[in-house]
Write a protein that binds this DNA or RNA. Structure first.
Lengths: 222, 222
DNA sequence: ATCACGGGCGACCAGCGGACGGTGAGCCA
DNA sequence: TGGCTCACCGTCCGCTGGTCGCCCGTGAT
């Protein structure tokens, strides 16, 4: 029910050139890659090319094997906030436009500062998961435990995070932007398109249901 | 002093193709072009192609000849606000991202709604003049009267509007963005780059002057 | 009628917010 | 060790915000 909605309705196909670059080489800093990361990275002189994939963990749990846990994911959002604050301070000092959100500029700054493990597609991908963590930590924790127990993968957990957020929006007049903006750590993140669409769709069907139940005087009122 | 600063410091030249299109034809609506406009538009069957240029007028004064007055200019800003509100209402209804500023989308909407006399370069050009009108109507009126009396052209008046705004910023901690955002009719307009630069330059030189006057303990403090 | 002035706004550009899906890391058998 | 699952993030795209200066309307002569 929370999957596939408003996902395939976009304009056209893209992606026409594979164009593999494959530069490799240029060994990175390599040391101290992740929060509480205890893996030895193999032991050869290889450089990390991607971050380890996330797995569903409960709060406080360290991910085993070549994986990262969700505490680390949420920690990345806090890091981005700190980079944003630095970018804001620099902008104010220079009398330039001061960003209020995590923009491309902030991702660029983070990369230049050596935080190469932060990138835009990843952060945008999990924004709503972080939102749930901010807005209802109890519910977030419960969901993490449930999905860990069932052995679900990260994609399944991520999809399911939409549901409680829409329920929160329902309780607060469906204004998901206002909900984000009211929370100091969340206000700096753009509301994900899909979350906004889900809220809108749910509001519409909720309104339709209630007007068909009340049975008149409310529907077709324009 | 208020002219030429930070104006020629940009990256490179542009404009490589004249490429005149010159479509002409396609007669427009033509009737009722401007607020209080009493001109007959020539009498032939010609269509208006540009708005009449602005001249410096005092409040309440109707521009003579083929000119528009400043009351009309400021009226355009109010119109844009109304178009923004309509765009916001449509966006909320559809569950789409809701603009808080006058964006390209709003200018496009205004044009589609028949307000072809509204366009982005014009509105952006005079934003700081409208800002002065909003923030200190007395000072704005005084400036208009002075420049009208002296027979100055619009460009000269426009340039001079920066000065009292920088003075206002000086009194309020130099935060021009905060000043714009605190005013409900101004908050929907982007702060012009040049105004921001002027505030920054003036703050810097004011700080330098005060630290050299106090004569020690305050300057070179980093 | 002609001319010089000056400013309106068409059209441009760097970079933005947003999205997709091919590599290739990773785990299990 | 081979295979196959799945998600990380390089790379794209439609636009945005911001700007410049050409063209021509305009009033004086």
């Amino acid at each position: 029910m929370w999957d596939g909605m408003a996902a395939g309705s976009n304009k056209q196909r893209r992606r026409r050139k594979p164009k593999r670059a494959k530069i490799t080489a240029s060994l990175e800093d390599d040391n101290e890659t992740a929060a509480g990361d205890q893996d030895d990275n193999g032991g050869g002189g290889s450089e990390r090319q991607r971050e380890h994939p996330f797995i569903v963990t409960e709060p406080g749990e360290v991910a085993r094997g070549k994986k990262n846990g969700l505490d680390y994911l949420f920690h990345l959002y806090e890091l981005c906030r700190e980079f944003l604050i630095q970018v804001q301070n620099i902008a104010k000092e220079r009398g330039e436009k001061c960003p209020t959100k995590v923009t491309n500029q902030v991702f660029r700054y983070a990369k230049e500062a050596g935080a190469s493990y932060i990138n835009k597609p990843k952060m945008r991908h999990y924004v709503h998961c972080y939102a749930l963590h901010c807005l209802d930590e109890e519910a977030s924790t419960a969901l993490r435990r449930a999905f860990k127990e069932r052995g679900e993968n990260v994609g399944a957990w991520r999809q399911t995070c939409y549901e409680p957020l829409v329920a929160i929006a329902a309780r607060q007049g469906w204004d998901i932007d206002a909900i984000f903006n009211a929370h100091p750590r969340l206000a700096i993140w753009y509301v994900p398109t899909k979350l906004r669409q889900l809220c809108h769709a749910e509001r519409s069907s909720a309104a339709a249901a209630s007007s068909s139940i009340t049975g008149g005087g409310d529907h077709l009122h324009f």
